[in-house]
Amino acid sequence: MKVAKGHSKRKAAPKAAKSKGAPMSAGIPTSKILKAQSSINAVLDGQPVLDPENDIAPHPRDSDGDSFYIISYLEGGGHKYTVLFHLMVIVKSLGTPVAQLVISVFDETTREYFSRELNEYWLNNTTVVPAGLDITMPWGRLSGTIDQLNVEGHLADGAVKLDMKLTMAARGPVLPNLVTGIIPFSDGIDYEYALPRMETSGQLTIHGAKCDVKGWSWLDREWGRFGPSKWTWMNIQLENGVQISLWDEQINDSNPNSYVGGPRRFATILNPDDGLIVAPVVIKELRNWISPKTKRTYATRWSVTIPERAELTVELLKDDQEIVSAIGVNRIEGKARVSGTYGKEKVNGVTMVEMCDLFPLFQTL
């Protein structure tokens, strides 16, 4: 695995007399070295802890939940769609877990948006094949391998009627978060990697109108142990080929109004030359919106700074892209536009923004 070197300019470190076999920094006070460094370059000589090809399947070990988060950017029939298919098998520690499927569709042409969260408690009417990836629920199915995923989704709920059948072929390298694929999450750890570029084709049927669609998808594969936490996550995809997985997480101990051990903010960047970079990130909320359905306040516009690399503005294309949850985890899963600079060059791009707060769920457990 290749890890890209930083390109930041540094002040010259103070010189010191060298002795045979001594490092270049020998004899220099540590405080002076820290002041001279604006960033740290490092080389990872090894492989990520995870095994993406085999880890595509559900995980029985060290995991309280499995998440398969797929965002598809599709065009067809004169329309431009963003489709979310998020299948989870969660709360395994309670015994037989819950299967949850979230489907949302945003038609950027008509500005129509709809979403549904569907839960099968204790895996009722759900089949999880022990070997490989094949999970079937009444409203959808996810199956396949790392080279080809097959997604089916069905909704028939009042005015919302949807059928989808998509095939996704992974192209290009894996993006393992923090390079190793291990990220801190609440009071435990999670494993996470992405397939950021999956060639996608298939059919969408919305309100009885069927059309062939083509485009690209991002799969975010995650498993591990989760606890009380609140986060904003973005999968920023820039037109210059740069792919970024960005985390801004806050955790708490016992008081939901007191965040400790955080925030944890970092970006894992996959460059067009397949090089990986891990960098700090500064994210600021610039505008908010109050949901009329849940009375929750969500950000809708952000500034994102990756020091010495990027200055970006992220803005939701539609404020109301909220998932109303039957288990109390209401959240935004929203398509957003990205603009700004990367490496001092002007860039544009897209992202999904996930704003999720697990504190209410853990208060009821």
Rank of each mutant, 00 (worst) to 15 (best):
Met1His: 15
Ala4Gln: 09
Lys9Asp: 06
Lys11Thr: 07
Ala16Thr: 09
Lys18Cys: 01
Ser19Glu: 10
Met24Lys: 11
Ser25Lys: 00
Pro29Ser: 00
Ser31Asp: 14
Lys32Arg: 12
Ser38Pro: 02
Ile40Cys: 02
Leu44Trp: 02
Gln47Phe: 14
Val49Asp: 10
Arg61Pro: 00
Asp62Glu: 09
Asp64Phe: 07
Glu75Gly: 06
Gly78Val: 06
Leu87Trp: 07
Lys92Leu: 10
Gly95Tyr: 02
Val98Thr: 14
Leu101Ser: 10
Phe106Thr: 03
Asp107His: 09
Thr109Val: 02
Thr110Asn: 13
Glu117Leu: 07
Asn119Glu: 02
Tyr121Trp: 10
Asn124Phe: 05
Thr126Val: 13
Val128His: 02
Pro130Ser: 05
Pro130Gly: 10
Thr136Ser: 12
Gly140Val: 01
Ser143Arg: 10
Ile146Leu: 09
Asp147Ile: 00
Glu152Asp: 04
Glu152Gly: 00
Gly153Met: 01
Ala156Trp: 03
Ala156Tyr: 08
Val160Thr: 06
Lys165Arg: 14
Thr167Glu: 11
Arg171Met: 06
Pro173Gly: 09
Val179Ala: 11
Gly181Thr: 10
Ile183His: 01
Asp187Glu: 15
Ala194Thr: 11
Ala194Gln: 15
Thr200Pro: 05
His207Ser: 14
Asp220Asn: 12
Arg225Asn: 07
Pro228Ala: 14
Ser229Lys: 03
Trp231Leu: 11
Trp233Asp: 08
Met234Thr: 06
Ile244Glu: 07
Ser245Val: 13
Ser245Thr: 14
Asp248Ala: 10
Asn255Ile: 08
Asn257Gln: 12
Ser258Lys: 15
Arg264Leu: 14
Arg265His: 02
Arg265Cys: 06
Ala267Phe: 11
Thr268Leu: 04
Gly275Glu: 12
Ile277Gln: 08
Val278Arg: 11
Ala279Gly: 05
Ile283Trp: 01
Glu285Tyr: 01
Trp289Thr: 04
Lys293Tyr: 08
Lys293Leu: 09
Thr294Trp: 04
Thr294Ile: 07
Thr297Gln: 15
Thr297Ala: 08
Thr297Ile: 12
Tyr298Asp: 03
Thr300Gln: 03
Arg301Asn: 07
Ser303Ala: 11
Ser303Gln: 13
Ile306Gln: 05
Thr313Val: 10
Asp319Ser: 11
Gln321Pro: 07
Ser325Asp: 03
Ile327Tyr: 14
Gly328Thr: 06
Gly328Phe: 12
Glu333Leu: 14
Gly334Glu: 07
Lys335Pro: 00
Val338Glu: 01
Val338Met: 00
Thr341Gly: 04
Gly343Thr: 06
Asn348Ile: 15
Met352Leu: 14
Phe359Met: 12
Leu365Glu: 02
